[in-house]
Simulated assay, not measured.
Amino acid sequence: MIRLSLIGIGTGNPEHLTLQAIRTIGAADLLLIPEKGAGKKDLADLRRMMLDTLVPAPHPMIAPLTLPVRDPAIRNYHARVEAWHDAIAALWERTIRNALPSGNGHVALMIWGDPSLYDSSLRIAARLAAHLPLQVEVVPGITSIQALCAAHAIPMNTLGGPVTITTGRQLRDHGWPPGAQTLVVMLDGNCAFQMLDPAGLHIAWTAFAGMPQEISLAGPLGSTGPQIISARAAARADHGWIMDIYRLTRSGSALA
């Protein structure tokens, strides 16, 4: 039986690791670390730094992963992502079988943020379970939403109001969701807030939340949106990658 631990490690600050996360990493036989691709080296280096500075020795064996990329020839978005997940699951399986040929052991992945929120690791693990005897466990971590709210010292919700968590793709294709009071927008590579009527909207945006290069801007969408677009482009040029998130609210909403 393979025990697979998906461990939320927060958004870049080593102090985001919980005691449970540190203990589970230290107990693993094998640690899978993605190391190639846009932004992967920085994130791999941070994972290794967390391992070296926070996890008592002896450390687990490390298996670096060169993740496949999505096939641009597959035009349908969901089909493209499903095929990508299949390829990643196959890579995990090969790596685990090579490192643990007995078919027994404890494998860990350090998941950016938390596995519950716009992360593919649980879906990929479900594919893996079809080919390996697998027990999956999740160690929760600080999410990018929590880090965003902390960066701006703001609550997520309006007073007694709901929060809609969505993606840039959904906002671009469908606009403001009917009845929504507060939006938290993730995975927005093209600043989809540009598609909205800015009147009465307030934005709180953070890139690299929790990391030393964290950038935060907030204000009316009409005036702050162009600043975010400029700052985002500059940061992406400097680092070669970017992870960001933002909250949108309508002016006059009571926050609590």
Rank of each mutant, 00 (worst) to 15 (best):
I33Y: 01
I111S: 13
L32G: 04
A73K: 12
W84P: 10
A234D: 12
A38E: 14
A28L: 08
T53R: 15
E93N: 00
A83H: 15
G161F: 01
T166K: 11
R250C: 12
N76A: 15
N157T: 06
G161E: 02
D173L: 08
K36W: 07
P177E: 09
A192N: 10
S223Q: 13
I7M: 02
I9C: 08
T143W: 15
V185H: 00
L132Q: 05
E137C: 05
G252P: 12
Q194H: 08
R3W: 07
P178G: 08
A129V: 00
N98P: 00
T24I: 02
T249F: 05
G168S: 07
A150C: 11
I25G: 00
L19P: 01
D29V: 10
A27M: 08
Y118G: 08
I229A: 01
A234N: 09
L187D: 11
Y246V: 14
C191G: 04
M61H: 13
V163Y: 02
M50I: 04
D42E: 09
L248F: 14
W241S: 11
L6T: 12
H202W: 15
R123C: 03
E93T: 05
M50D: 01
E137K: 06
L51A: 10
I7Q: 07
A234V: 04
L100W: 05
R48F: 03
T11C: 15
L30H: 09
G240W: 12
A79K: 09
I145Y: 14
L171N: 04
S230E: 02
H106I: 04
A153M: 05
I7C: 03
A28V: 06
G240E: 13
V55M: 08
F208N: 04
R236C: 03
V136E: 08
N98E: 15
P133V: 06
A90T: 10
S116A: 11
A151H: 09
R47A: 08
Y118R: 07
P140K: 05
N190P: 00
P68I: 09
V81I: 14
L17A: 00
H239V: 02
I154A: 12
A129I: 00
A63K: 09
R247G: 12
D45C: 11
A87D: 13
V136H: 03
L248D: 12
A235P: 02
A233S: 03
A108E: 02
I142K: 15
A27H: 11
A83T: 13
A231D: 00
Y118H: 10
V55Q: 06
R23H: 03
E214G: 11
A99R: 12
L43W: 14
N157E: 04
Y246L: 14
H85E: 15
F193C: 07
F208M: 06
A151C: 12
Q135R: 13
L109S: 09
A90G: 06
Y77N: 15
I245N: 14
T166V: 07
A90K: 06
E35V: 12
I74M: 11
M1P: 13
T143V: 14
A209K: 13
A90C: 05
R127P: 01
L134S: 05
